[in-house]
């Protein structure tokens, strides 16, 4: 464990909690893409199946349960509890165009052709594009609530910190995982446009609205 991975995990946890609290406190999921949240729940489910097979540490296990629990709670609140506030007309990204090719890619490019490894690879690839429905929805509505932009900021920051963690681990431990690194770079690049708007607008107290 290093400072980049720890702050990355805490940033990820902060994002997940911010979203959960936003929906719970405002009793509304307006502006939130339910499709992205379904993809994140799928990412955690396919990645954390090793909860059943191996124990790494109390931190590792507890964080996995928290991520999975929060992801499903968020999906439940969007599609069941506060369904009336779900903006389905703007959440129209065709996720099947993501899931199917990524499923195929996970079979072709992986470290080991075993079920757990292929599912892990699928989850790494899927996570890199899972935010697309949310970014697409914001481009369609032309704006985002400020709390939603904080959620996106911490979510984007977490994988950027993981990139630094991988540099650290390569230098100090000789560890690297090319699949995770390439997917992590793609994932972080997808946030660049948002990061620019966040820094130039939201941090200056303005509302995030498009076109910029």
């Amino acid at each position: 464990m290093n400072i980049f991975r720890l702050t990355g995990d805490l940033s990820h946890l902060a994002a997940i909690i911010i979203l959960l609290l936003k929906i719970w406190k405002t009793r509304s999921c307006a502006g939130i893409s339910g499709k992205s949240q379904i993809l994140f729940a799928l990412v955690f489910t396919t990645r954390y199946l090793d909860l059943l097979t191996s124990f790494i540490s109390l931190y590792n296990t507890s964080m996995k349960f928290i991520y999975i629990g929060c992801a499903y709670a968020t999906v439940y609140m969007i599609y069941a509890k506060f369904k009336a506030t779900y903006d389905g007309n703007h959440d129209t990204f065709r996720v099947e165009f993501l899931v199917v090719p990524i499923g195929g890619l996970a079979f072709l490019v992986n470290h080991d052709f075993s079920p757990l490894e292929i599912l892990w690879t699928f989850s790494i690839y899927l996570e890199s594009v899972a935010i697309l429905p949310q970014l697409f929805m914001i481009s369609k509505t032309g704006e985002a609530e400020t709390i939603t932009t904080h959620y996106l900021f911490f979510l984007g920051l977490y994988r950027a910190l993981y990139l630094m963690n991988w540099i650290w681990r390569f230098y100090f431990e000789g560890f690297f995982d090319m699949i995770a690194i390439v997917a992590g770079v793609v994932q972080t690049i997808l946030y660049c446009d948002f990061f620019y708007l966040y820094v130039t607008k939201v941090l200056k107290g303005k509302k995030l609205s498009l076109p910029a």
């Binding site: 790494i56 540490s57 590792n60 996995k64 993981y162 560890f175 995982d177």
Partner: peptide, 10 residues
């Protein structure tokens, strides 16, 4: 390659 084949990252 993963250390001792385990995935220790979240």
């Amino acid at each position: 390659p993963q250390p001792e084949g385990k995935k220790d990252e979240l």
